[in-house]
Amino acid sequence: MWMLLLLIALIATIIFIYFITVEPAKKHVSEEAQKSLINQVPDSFKNGEITVLVKDPNTIFTHWDIPKDILNKFQAYYGKSAWENSEPLIRVYDLSEGKGQQIKEVPVDLRANNCYIEINRAGIILNLELGILLPDRSFITLARSEAVSVPATKFSNVIDPFWPPLETAWKSFSTENNIDTVSSQNLIENRPHSRD
């Protein structure tokens, strides 16, 4: 009888090892597992960082640094085939309403470490997640950026009843389109009759 039990235990162990090493990508990746993976990111300047900067109301710039050991751990955990069939992505979230709503998903090449992303969402607050989309469509976050505000391009619709806009003051600014800016660059670039 004990021999039978031993055999069953042995088979169960083989099956367990098979599932965690040979085809790990098929298993369900729980939120806890994702968190645990992020927690493996050592807290140092070299590890798992993504930064987002606003270029203008339509475009953001992001740069990231995912150290090799994170990617190695990923491969060890999910398997080489999962890695080869997965897709690195940046997800853009609109945080304006408090809860993040995904507004864009951009495939990236992890061999690069930066890219511009067109967002065309002036006035929102956003953040980014850089992660891996597995063949089973689960998304493993490797790094998360801080939130940034994208500047507005329109006059605010919010009116303070104690300070209603005064027509005389706003007369020169009838539309957003006639607002320009001038700076020292204008002086350098636009000067007529330059040396050339």
Partner: peptide, 24 residues
């Protein structure tokens, strides 16, 4: 609102294809 007096009015003078490499 976020703004600057650079050309375009936002961050594009200090963040563009010529200089974005410095921020990393």
């Amino acid at each position: 609102s976020m703004s600057s007096w650079g050309q375009g009015g936002y961050n594009q003078v200090w963040l563009n294809e010529n200089n974005s490499w410095i921020y990393e």
